[in-house]
Each structure stands twice: as structure tokens, then as C-alpha cells.
Design a protein around this nucleic acid. Structure first.
Lengths: 208, 208, 208, 208
DNA sequence: AATGAATGAGGATTCATTCAT
DNA sequence: CATGAATGAATCCTCATTCAT
């Protein structure tokens, strides 16, 4: 005569994943402070208490979300860009494509937006993100730019002092779409094209 | 049923201002949700209840902060840029200077950061900001870019489809400095130089 | 060069009265707990602090209101009823008339309603009211009823055990009109007629 | 960011009931405005927050209290009086008995007192109460009185214009006992007897 | 393991009261 | 005398967290 039919579906790792998926949705929509654990649980189709079997508290859930999802990001990029020894312009083109398809085109976009919103409140996240992703990403980009400079293809050396600016359009896009989508989307392709068009001189030997 | 010490002082407008100043500090540091009215009051050197003599509630205080400080921003820019019929590149240079000195160099920087953080939670603010500042700002920039294009000075016409990208470095700077300042400031001058260098062709008749 | 034009109109006793008038209005409308001192002050056309020059606190104001207005009530009645040695039925008729014109027809009606509402929260008021008004009023009525009984005019001696019931229609009227006036007023005249018609037998020697 | 002991126990409907019981006690004692949710919780032997699991806010709790307890009141009366086609005097006698045993003799008495106190502040309650109870009650009584009149048993037809007066002794009793019990209870039996004795003529054919 | 009822710390807001002007 | 800006105690309500089932 069992009364509570105790669901027992997902294996633990999958359950953990489904909670993080739900958390991404809810945190993205409301921000950390306004997201209620109960909402996340409901989204994941589980009870409130269950969340605490997988994460010690709300903050941990949030931090896990950020680090586990954004961590692997650069791996791919790095590998793919380093191996192919393409001309800088093509390399950057591929990089932009990666950003577009691997981040902005997926729900990871929401994570980036979340980070921009909440980093201020979670310095450890900022630190983790900086040490793990930013630093490596900037180094990666910087190497490409320096190669371009070495080949005399860089139109302005100023960019070597702010490699971060390469990420500006992506950041802009995330923030714009999160807040102003209803007034018209931002044309990300145009933004990337603009960068590619202006950053590099035409390939050697092209028309003057 | 209460006691109550006392303290008379500031004229009402000054008091209101001092509350908004304190609010900017506290909201910037903690974000809207984590800022306690009592903190703001203490920062302003007044009692909790006094805040409510000047603002009906926490949200109003926040919104007033945003709208009263950012509202007048574009006025100046617009006036100054339109009157001076300078070449596009110079015009944009002045514009960047304005951003640097009037926004990023002042505490308004914190407001922009606050907006980027909280707009998601306050759609009315996003709307107000879009209608009041963004739209006008984009139109302003677009006119400059189109003038440049008409003069054949634009290196890539792609930017005409995303005038927002002109603001990307400023946004990046705000977010970077808010979160990663301790890892080294972002070189905003270099970013602006980079834009100016690559956006425009050398003036007509210059050396090839 | 005076800046504040310091009003200085009413003499102190009149000022005190005007505050109590305002208090009656506001307390009646909102009840003690929901009435704000500031509302009362505004009603009286004075500043908030001025109220405290005449009453030490909100509760005192309320109590003064009750006791000073209801206190003198019975004086009149007593005097008028005792002196005129009319038959009981006429005496009670006059008494009902007094209630109608001196209480229910004036703003004192609101005071009675206020009392019915707030006595529970102010036992001292209940005590004062009981000792000052109720006891005397019941004694007065009881004497009339006993005179009627002595003359063999009382239809039921049960009323001698609950003289309070003589006041029931007045109380009912106050509460009904305070809460249900919009659904139609209560016919107070009919209620008093009903009492007079049923309480007493027809005068001695009348037709069977 | 919180701790939390525990305690499991009552089934939900019982828990809800226990909160309403506690609420009746506390609201009756202090009135709506002065009752603290925490007091009610403590009375019910539960934590503050638990109240909010069963009622969205203080006002809802109060309104539920009123409507759920007083709503069913008339059902009984109506049924019992209509079915038994007794003479008017007996019918009214039964009605008074019902009031005495079903209302004044139970804690519902406190509810009536609460209503008399708070209706002013909650017009919706007044409306609900009027539409649900009062109207039906008055119609019920009126029918009895009219039957009496048709049978020539009514001593004064004035009562047909204020059937509310039939409830006056009950109301008086509630208010008296709530406020002046310590000075001696009101003799409710005498009051009802008085009404029954005077309202109706002796049954037809009795001695003159 | 999973649940959700129960808890109480935390923070927004109100308003009686004081007192500098 | 009069004023109303300033104060902070008091209370409602939310929601992260716990734990009996």
C-alpha cells in the first residue's frame, strides 16, 4: 500500500543536467536574485527539495551552471584555429563563425548574457571566467592579430593594445538582443563583416 | 508609540540629489535586488524612512536614477556634433571624446553598467532608454556614417547596417572595467583609435 | 524679512475643537488604526505637528473625542425626562425623539459607530462609557419602565431584566446605516413606533 | 541563506482549519489592524511563513474567516423554519433559539462581533454579508411576520417596515458581551421573551 | 532517492512622534 | 505657536533551506 509513487526516472547525471538546463532558462529570464528555486524545480519537472540533492545551494547551482557550460567553449576554438594555419583574415572569419554558431546561435547566448548581468555580484565567477576563458581567448586572438601584423596585413596596430575589442560585437549582440530584440534584431553578420573588412588590408597583391 | 531623534539640514532638492548619489553607489555595487534601502540611507547619512519622503518606493528611486541621469546625455552630443560641420572622421573623434569625458570618465559609467545589468528586469527602463537615448544616438551616428559614405570615405558599408557597433567599444569598456578592472584596465583610447583608423579611408587626396 | 508666514488664526480652544472635529471625520471614516494623524491635520487645515500641541498622542486624541462628545449626552436627557412627569409612554416617546434628534441626526451618530467599532481595543473607553453614560442611561430607562409597570401598563415584565434592549434599535440603526446605507436606509421611525406600540398596553380605560 | 527546523503533522485541511481558529481568536481580541500574523501563527502552533501557505495574505485570511463561517449560517435556519409550518410565535421562538444555540452560544459570536467592528473597513465583506446573509435572513423573517399579520396576530404593523429590528437584541447582545461583560452579562433570554411577549397578540380565543 | 510542508531570516514600507527652524 | 522634515520601530510578506515522510 504505497502512497507516494516516488518517481525514479533519470539516472543521476542526467537529472543533474536537467536541473542545470532548467536553471539556465529561469536564471536567464529573471536574473539570479529573482529566480526562485521552486521555479527551477518546476521547470525541471521535479520537487523543490530534489534540487538540493544535486547542489548544496542556489549559488552553487548558479556557479556550476556558468563554469560547466562556458568552460569547454574555448577548447574547441583553440584547437580548430591553431591547427589550421590559415591567413589571419580567414582565421578570424572562422572564429566569428564559431562564436555565431557555437555561442550566439545556442542557448549559451543566455549564459553570456547572464554573466554580463551577474558577474558583478559574483566576483569568484568573474575571476574564474577571466582566468579560464578570457585570458586564453585574448591570447588566442592576439596571436592571430600579431601574425597579421607580421604579414603587414593589419590596418591599425591600435587593436594590438585592446584585443578585447574583437569580442565587442558579440557582447553587443548578446546585450542588444536580450533587451531590445522587440525593436529589431541586431545585424550580427554585418558587424562581423565590418570588422573583417576594416581590420585587415586587402591581401597582398590585390588591387591598390 | 515611537521615539525619534532629529536633524535638520539640506534643502529638499539637495537632499534628493544626495539620495540619488548614494543610490548610484549602492545600486552599482550590489545591483538592484541586493541593494538595501537602509544601505542607501546610511550612505546618504539619513534615516531609512527619509528615502521614502523623496521616492515612493525602491523601484521608483532606481528608475529616477536611470532616467534623470542618462536622459540629458544625448542633448549635448547632438547639439555639439550637428552644429560643427566637420569631416566625418573628426566628428566621430569628437563623439568618442564626448563618450570618454562625459560618460566613461564620470560616475555615469556606473549607470551604464547598472543599466546593462538590470534592463532585463525592468522592461520599462529598456523601453525608455531605447526610445530616449538609443534611437536618437543611432540616428545621429548613422547620419555621420552616411555623410562619410557619400564622401566616399567609408571603408566598409557593412557598418551602415549595424550602427550600434560604433557603441560596442564603449559598452565593452564599461563591462570590462566593472568586472575585470583588477586584471588590468581596458585601453579605451586604443579602441577608439582602432575604430577611427579602420573605419575611414584616409582623407581624399592623401598619399596612397 | 520673515519667510514663513506662520498662520495664527484660531484661539487655542477653538483650535482644539477644530482638531477634534477633523478627528471625528477621519476616525469615523477609517477607524482608529487606519486613521493617519496627518489626515486629521490636513482636515483641520493645520500642520501635523500642531496636533501634538493639543494632544499628547493619537490615543489621547481619540479618547478625548469620545469622552468630551458623548459625556454631556445624558445630562440633557436626564433633565428633560425627569422634570416632566409625563406618562411612561410619552416619556419614552420623548426619549426616542431625543435620541433621534440629538444623536442619530447629528454627527454624534458617527461617534457611536466609532465606539461600537473601537471599544474592544480601548477598555478604558468602554469603562468610561459604561460608568458615565450607560449606567445612568439604563437607570433612567429602568425608572420609566418601573413606573409603567407600577401603573400596570407594561405588556411584558421581561424588559425589566434587560433595559438595554430599549437602546437596541438605536444601536442597530447606527450600525446598519454605517455599513448598509447603500442597500437602503433603516426605517428608524418604524422601529421606535414598533417599540412604543408593543411595549405598553393601551392607556387604562381605553377601549378593550 | 536560512536555517529551518521542522515538524510534520496535520493534514492540510485540518491545518487550514487550525489557522482559521487561531485567526478568529486573535482577530477577535485585537481587531484586524492590530492582529499580527505572527500572533496568529503562534496561536496555531506554527511558524509565521506557514500561514502564507494557506492564505495569500492577511486580508484573505480575514475574509475567508468571515465568509466560510457565516455563510452556512442561514441554510440551517431557513430549512428548519420553512419546513415546520408552525404558528408565527413558535416559529420566531425557534428562530431565537437557533440564534442562541448556533451563533451566540458558540465562537461564531466572536465572528459577528468582528464583523460589526470591521465591516466599515472592508466594504466587500459588508457587501458579501448583506447579499448572502442579511437579505435572506430579512426575507425569512418578513415572511413569518407577514404570516402573523395575515392571521391577525401582529400587535404592531410597524415592524413590517423594519424587520431588521428582530435582530437587534442579538446584535446588542454580541456587542454588550464583547465590551461590557465584566459589568454583568446581558440577559438574552429576557430580551427574546420580551420580543415574543410583545410582538404577538395572545393566540385567538384566549382571554381578553 | 524524492518530496513539499514548514520555517524564519531578511528587507520593503508605513506612520506616530520629535524637534530644528 | 506652528510646521513638516526626519526618524526608526513595527509588521507584512517572500523564499532559500531543511527534514519527516
Amino acid at each position: 500500500m504505497n502512497k507516494a509513487p516516488k518517481r525514479r526516472s533519470l539516472p543521476p547525471e542526467a537529472r543533474r543536467k536537467s536541473i542545470m538546463d532548467a536553471a539556465l532558462v529561469v536564471f536567464s529570464e529573471k536574473g539570479f536574485a529573482n529566480a526562485r528555486i521552486e521555479d527551477i524545480a518546476r521547470h525541471a519537472g521535479i520537487g523543490k527539495g530534489t534540487v538540493y540533492l544535486y547542489f548544496p545551494d542556489k549559488e552553487s547551482l548558479f556557479k556550476s551552471l556558468i563554469s560547466e557550460a562556458l568552460g569547454p567553449l574555448l577548447m574547441t576554438a583553440h584547437a580548430r584555429l591553431e591547427e589550421a594555419r590559415l591567413p589571419p583574415r580567414e582565421t578570424l572569419g572562422i572564429f566569428f563563425d564559431l562564436i555565431r554558431t557555437e555561442v550566439l546561435g545556442t542557448e549559451k547566448r543566455d549564459l553570456v548574457q547572464l554573466m554580463a548581468m551577474e558577474m558583478r555580484n559574483f566576483p569568484e565567477i568573474a575571476e574564474f571566467y577571466h582566468d579560464t576563458i578570457i585570458r586564453a581567448g585574448l591570447a588566442l586572438i592576439l596571436r592571430v592579430l600579431e601574425r597579421a601584423e607580421a604579414r603587414g596585413e593589419l590596418r591599425s596596430t591600435a587593436v594590438l593594445k585592446v584585443p578585447q575589442v574583437i569580442f565587442a560585437p558579440a557582447l553587443l549582440s548578446v546585450i542588444w538582443n536580450a533587451n531590445f530584440a522587440r525593436y529589431g534584431d541586431l545585424d550580427l553578420d554585418a558587424a562581423f563583416d565590418f570588422y573583417l573588412d576594416t581590420l585587415f588590408k586587402p591581401a597582398e597583391g590585390d588591387a591598390p
